[in-house]
Each structure stands twice: as C-alpha cells, then as structure tokens.
C-alpha cells in the first residue's frame, strides 16, 4: 500500500480537485439546460391555456437560467485552462528533469574520456598507420623495383601482338578484291566501314 501511495503526488490531488470541480460544473450546466428547457415547455403550455402571466414568468426564469449557463461556461473554460496549464507545467518539469539526467550522464562519460587520453590514442594510431605504411612499402617496393620494367615490357609486347593480330585479321580481305582505289581509301574504309564494306561485298 505504501509503495502504491507514493505514486500519487500532491499535484495529482490538486489536479483531481480541479477536475472534480470541472465535472461538477458540467453536471450543473446540464441541469440548467434541462431546467431552461422545462421552463420553455411550461411557457408553451401556459400560452395554450391562455395564462400569459405564467408564460412570461417561465420565460423570464428561462432567461435567467441561460445567463447562469453562460457564467458557468466561462468558469468551465477558466478551470480547464488552469488544469491544462498545470498539466503542461508538469510535463515541462519532467522534460527538464530528463534533460538534466541526460546532461549528467554525458558529463560522466566525458569524465571517463580525458583529452590527454584521446591525444595519446590518436598519436598511437598515427604511429601505427605510419608503421603499417612502412611495412607495405617494404613488401611491395621489392617486387616493383625488380619487376616493373619486365612487367612493362611484357605489357607492351602483348599490346603489340594484339595490334599485329588485328591488322593481320583484317588484312587478307584487301588483296582478294580488285580495287582501283588507292591504299589510302582502303585504310579509310576500315574506319567508317558501313557503306564501303557493303560496296565491297557487292563487288
């Protein structure tokens, strides 16, 4: 029981009192509306029986009830506003508390990370990276220095071979056909092939 009791704060009680008050006003305004309605009925009935005085009195009463109703409504709005302000203030308080807690934790974490430590770690990291680079240079450097020329030569050889084979592949067509045109045209025909090739095939 004690543990449960603690969940209800004095603010909760204050809010409840306000809300109860609001409920009471609501009930009251419901009642007034009913009374006003009844007065109207009474007035109608009185008029039917020709009792004008009674009808007038009933209407006056109705008017009075309506004034009361209006007053009640203003009070209701005031109450609701107050309750909402309090509830909002409570929310704000919680937000603030949340922020404060977050801040504290952030501070704690920062305490654990000192600037010197960070500097030290960064330096160590830089050292490690430099060391790694050195190792890489050493390992890769040996291979490239010795073999780079050889590799380049091999590459060139392959490229040349390819070019040669390409030329050879397209060459045999040339002597098969009797062409009055010069070799210049022949080379041109290779570059933009479409039309001339078709002509060649036709011939």
């Amino acid at each position: 029981m004690g543990a449960r009791e603690s969940k209800i704060t004095p603010q909760d009680r204050a809010i409840l009192d306000l809300k109860v008050q609001r409920d009471r006003l609501k009930k009251y305004s419901k009642k007034i509306q009913l009374v006003a309605l009844r007065e109207k009925e009474i007035a109608k009935e009185a008029l039917l029986t020709g009792n004008k005085r009674k009808a007038l009195l009933a209407l006056k009463k109705k008017k009075y009830q309506e004034v009361l109703l209006e007053k009640t409504e203003t009070q209701l709005i005031n109450l609701e506003e107050l309750t909402q302000t309090i509830e909002f203030a409570l929310v704000e308080k919680e937000v603030l508390a949340g922020l404060a807690r977050g801040n504290e934790i952030l501070k704690e974490i920062h305490n654990e990370i000192s600037l010197e430590q960070v500097e030290q770690i960064m330096e160590d990291t830089a050292d490690a990276i430099a060391y790694q680079n050195e190792i890489e240079e050493l390992l890769s450097g040996k291979i490239t220095e010795d073999d780079e020329e050889e590799i380049m030569q091999e590459l060139e050889a392959i490229v040349e071979e390819q070019i040669a084979s390409e030329i050879n592949a397209s060459m045999p067509k040339v002597p098969d056909v009797e062409l009055p045109t010069s070799t210049k045209d022949d080379i041109q025909s290779k570059v933009p092939p479409k039309k001339e090739e078709q002509q060649m095939l036709a011939a």
């Binding site: 449960r4 969940k7 209800i8 909760d12 009680r13 409840l16 109860v20």
Partner: peptide, 17 residues
C-alpha cells in the same frame, strides 16, 4: 498495478491515475 484510484478532497468524488 496499472492504475491507482484516489479521492478528491471532499472524498465523494474519485479519480484514477
């Protein structure tokens, strides 16, 4: 444990949290 009822000051009206 999902709610708790409480009484208003006049003890007739009830509220719940």
């Amino acid at each position: 444990g999902e709610a708790q009822t409480l009484q208003a000051t006049n003890a007739e009206e009830m509220g719940v949290k």
